[in-house]
Design a protein around this nucleic acid. Sequence first.
DNA 1: CAGTGGTCTAGACCACCCT
DNA 2: GGGTGGTCTAGACCACTGA
Lengths: 254, 254
Amino acid sequence: MGTQQLEAVPEPKYWHLRTVLSEALDSEFAVGEILPNERDLAARFGVARATLRQALEQLELEGRLHRRRGVGTTVAPPRMGVAVGADGQAWPGGGGDDSWQSVDCTLAVPPAAVATALVIPRGHAVYTVRRSRVSHGQPVAAELLYVPQSSVPDLTAIDAPSEAARARAVLRELQRLELEGQDRAVELGSARADDAKELDRLPGAPVLVVTTRFFAEGRTAALSVATYRADTCRLTFGAAGGVEIHHGPERRAS
Amino acid sequence: MGTQQLEAVPEPKYWHLRTVLSEALDSEFAVGEILPNERDLAARFGVARATLRQALEQLELEGRLHRRRGVGTTVAPPRMGVAVGADGQAWPGGGGDDSWQSVDCTLAVPPAAVATALVIPRGHAVYTVRRSRVSHGQPVAAELLYVPQSSVPDLTAIDAPSEAARARAVLRELQRLELEGQDRAVELGSARADDAKELDRLPGAPVLVVTTRFFAEGRTAALSVATYRADTCRLTFGAAGGVEIHHGPERRAS
DNA sequence: CAGTGGTCTAGACCACCCT
DNA sequence: GGGTGGTCTAGACCACTGA
């Protein structure tokens, strides 16, 4: 009799909590609504705050909650679809795409992994264009675009009035090349300190890293590494818009 | 004088720890090597075990570590590139793709969100094909493919000898339709209990959810929801192979 | 069985936001 | 200043693995 017989399947508390909260979010809360604070919620469910937080972290990972220090926990809107490679192949910054905004541009030695992908010697400097992407009024992605000097040989003197202008000049030169193909990969990562700041998140926040290689003149002419907020974004490929599949029931019908 | 002046930038301990461990992994450990256990590591760094675990969780999220209960923590190999939509558009299971294996097939009512995407009434049953994907000898993805009965009208009697055979029959029928287009989205999710089991992970493990809509005969003919292990997979699009960009230095050169 | 990672607790203090 | 979420501690017990 000392043992409880509830939970024949010893599901972890935080996982059960996640399910309970998830269902409550579906039925009892509206988007943007503020949840009770963590201490109250923990007391209400009779668990330690750390356990409650584990459940909240899950829900935040799934894009259901939005937590801000000093403010509170709110119900997040459904993830926004963000087009990545909307229509076939295109250079970055081309074709009237105004969702990206150039921030700055430096001539610097890239990380070794980037040098390898670009097939250039280590320690060789490349143009590093920094851009940020905004969607529905909030930052969704930060990108580093690496362009070897050899890809933009005609880039005129560095007399641009600002860093942003210099970045645009690099993009403009790049678009003069004929794009022969591109290559994309998506993986999970965690935001570095600088990206986190730009994305308005804490360091270590989960991000979707989209790496794109651009081929021209028979070689890799540029490499883009874009980090998207994983909590708020659903990356869409192909036709615009994308599918709306969200947090269905835990078990599907049998 | 009561305050310590170490750490002028009050970086969280677990984040600093993550960086230190990450560098140690680069320089002092080989892939597959076993790390000291968590209690020892925590003692060595002078932190609580929970803090050490926060750092390990980050590294696992980034695909650098592999942790198994009852076994230990090992250094993970680089993520494997997994082709998703290798070349243009194709029905699932077509074209000699042997990376997917049909598991079973039921006729069941799908989650409401799926019914919405398929534009069918709620409570309407669809064929639900379950497949699993193996790469390099380990499971990487679990898929649920929803096929409305109207997409496979000629499917003959349900006399298949096994669930798997029935699944293949549905796929075969599907491939008789002319594929007019498809639509893909990628987002972060957490593994449900059943997916987790199939992927050899614990529930809640981070996964990349790839949702694909298949269009034929002017409507959505099928919907695929595939969950990929986020820790071991890098999803590649376009040309085969993909890019190899991994855990570069925390700060890039200026 | 001993050893591992996974879960959970009950506290404490800190960084941040808003008023 | 008061309230929020973020970090951290020092324990405890559990579930699982493999010898």
